[in-house]
């Protein structure tokens, strides 16, 4: 690993927090996207069944 001297904690902490937040955001986005897709497919299927 890099030698970051006396600022090691600050650098690691801020990178961890920033990247952690971004990863969290990406995960939430992907989950919401998958759920919305499923719900829409289900709704479209019901609609097709009704009119079919």
């Amino acid at each position: 690993m890099l030698d970051l001297g006396k600022y090691a904690v600050a650098v690691y902490a801020s990178w961890a927090i920033a990247l952690g937040l971004v990863v969290l955001l990406v995960l939430i986005t992907l989950r919401q996207s998958a759920k919305a897709k499923l719900d829409l497919d289900a709704a479209e299927a019901r609609k097709a069944a009704r009119h079919g």
Binding site: A36, E44, R50
Partner: peptide, 30 residues
Amino acid sequence: LLFVTLLLLRTRTEVRRRRTHALETRERMA
């Protein structure tokens, strides 16, 4: 670019949700 990617993804999600909402409302009306 990460913002654009996430924005597109999330907007697509919102469009799908809106469509689902519309379909469900129509179902309830029927």
